[in-house]
Design a protein around this nucleic acid. Structure first.
Lengths: 341, 341
DNA sequence: ACTATCTCCAAAAGCGCTTTCATCATCCCA
DNA sequence: TGGGATGATGAAAGCGCTTTTGGAGATAGT
């Protein structure tokens, strides 16, 4: 059916081993033979069978990305594409393929990972924003398979991961509000089981404390990465007797909900309530007003995490925790003096 | 190193062939033997080597999704995740894996596909919104590999594909505006090399003609799937002496640009200019005002297309072109009588 | 001229699995 | 009681590749 290494060998008048060596660019092969074999390969349209290759080499040149369970999905909804683009760019560069897998629950997820790893299907893995006590992480460590996290894990500090400095990011964002003269600043948070949430919360608090401002617990509301979540959190915060005049919001999508809710209640943004947020997804600049957001370098996160796994596969020493720089993108939602273009 | 079928066989006191048959649930195996072998497999933590399996079975139980080239990416940015979720759900159900691949240009893309197909790496493929004269399509047809398109191809009408009835969708959307009393309706289009664009344009025109309204070429502007594109197209249309009072926009992201531009020029929406759009991404309901949009069933597109490929692999007869129903989601941007919640 | 060294290549084994073919009990019915 | 089914298993070949081993011929050293 398909043309094999044998067919090439026969036609070129050499042995299969020689053809194999030509493909692998083995040094001890004469230039003449190499040229002739390559010519025949071209002529026959030969492509090596990747399964056979993998079987003997015990390597598949593929990395799996494990999607978070449905409950965690919403965070990714808008920067998932950018992330994957980053991953794909790095892997393609290195001649690796990308396998995507997931599961509808923890059990299923672990089974899938086990099957892929023990079945010799992948050379490494990438985990997205895992929550606390992830059994997959324990499993992968035991198996000694190269893998990296995107977003730090709370329970396994020494696991290779790529992350932002979320404490500093939140510190910067909050400070920006303080620099605008804000004194009453609330925080719309995310699930506290995520390191990302805890870090941003910490940075927010630290900025307030450093500026001598009060940290009021009633101004801090935990939510999910959902639109409605932002809406509800906002309602809860603003219905208090002395509501804040500025909000730090865990994520852009949540911020959209906040924004909308505020507008419906008649608050003007940023005059009555200023807003800063995180992740800087493409639509942040399109809302009315555009949202000030911390760009976390989504593409870079994917790109760097993949690189990390590839390095581990090549046994190259790596920094266990890599930090992607963030950047506050100031837009209208946080500015006291509103400037129109 | 890892436990193989031989290890299981030895420990169970049977031959490797028997173990293999137990795994494959071969009928002619005694219940007793089956039970014992399964027990041993469990005990040893046996997982079959998938590469070896693939080599001999000539099947990999994996489907590749080919991402469009970077230039086409933006369309997908926001509904990519939903699409992939649909694909993944179907594939996981059937015990298949998902491989993601792409390329930075046409040449590279074709090389990747060739490598995957000829290398026996995948059993089938899924192509996203391909443009005209795609060399990959020709290649795959020649190779007789099962594959399906998401979004119809302009050049290969008989290729298996999953699509919306975009003509009808645009017809419905436009008619909705007409029902609101609109008479001057423009169209912000996308790249005409996509079937989707041409279909929506046709539906738009048909609705106007059927209602006895004029189709003015100067009210139809081609753009890309970009924010700025919507902005520019809007500017071009609205700067005319007699601008339309309603716009049909090819995609939500473009519509955001239109929305923003209109607001900056002082137009009120929907009072001065009404808007309907397509794709109904999650943020459509979050803009000010929320955008009326045609829901195309993104998840379903992915789910159904995968099913199609799986059916082809199983040699089951399929309908060459499957249509996912659409649904107009009416929101404030298109309503003459504005109702506040 | 004879051995030592080097270069290039072929033969063959083996990766972990499936599957064909053969074998051996067991069973049923004449 | 014997012979053809039938059922359960084992032996062995082979999927397409890599890699080890070893050998033939060329080149160099003494």
């Amino acid at each position: 059916m398909s043309v094999t290494i044998k067919d090439v060998a026969k036609k070129a008048g050499v042995s299969p081993s020689t053809v194999s060596r030509v493909i692998a660019e083995h040094p001890r092969i004469s230039l003449e033979t190499s040229r002739r074999v390559k010519e025949i390969m071209e002529e026959l349209g030969y492509h090596p069978n990747l399964m056979a290759k993998s079987l003997v080499s015990r390597t598949t040149r593929t990395i799996a990305v494990i999607l978070p369970k449905p409950a965690e999905e919403l965070l990714l909804n808008f920067f998932f594409y950018e992330l994957i683009r980053g991953v794909l760019a790095q892997l393609t560069r290195a001649g690796y393929d990308l396998l995507m897998a997931g599961g509808s629950n923890e059990q299923e997820e672990l089974e899938t990972v086990t099957r892929l790893v023990r079945g010799g299907r992948v050379d490494g893995l990438l985990l997205l924003y895992s929550r606390s006590s992830d059994p997959i992480i324990s499993f992968l460590r035991k198996e000694k398979v190269p893998f990296a996290l995107i977003g730090r894990s709370l329970d396994y500090e020494d696991v290779p991961s790529v992350d932002n400095d979320n404490v500093q990011a939140a510190y910067d964002a909050t400070n920006h509000l303080i620099a605008q003269g804000q004194k009453r600043i609330g925080f719309v948070s995310g699930p506290t089981k995520l390191a990302m949430t805890q870090d941003r919360m910490a940075g927010y608090s630290k900025a307030l404390v450093d500026a001598g401002l009060p940290v009021k617990q009633s101004w801090i509301v935990e939510g999910e990465f959902l639109l409605e979540s932002g809406y509800r959190a906002m309602a809860s915060i603003m219905s208090q007797p002395e509501p804040p005049t500025a909000l730090v919001v865990i994520d852009d999508v949540v911020a959209f909900g906040v924004l909308k809710g505020l507008a419906e209640l008649g608050y003007r943004i940023p005059q009555d309530v200023a807003i800063v947020s995180f992740n800087n997804i493409a639509l942040s600049e399109l809302t009315m007003p555009p949202i000030t957001s911390v760009d976390v370098g989504t593409y870079q996160l994917g790109y760097t995490a993949s690189q990390m796994v590839l390095r581990m596969i090549q046994q190259v020493e790596i920094t266990t925790r890599q930090i992607i720089p963030h950047r506050l993108v100031v837009r209208e939602s946080s500015l006291r003096t509103v400037t129109h273009v």
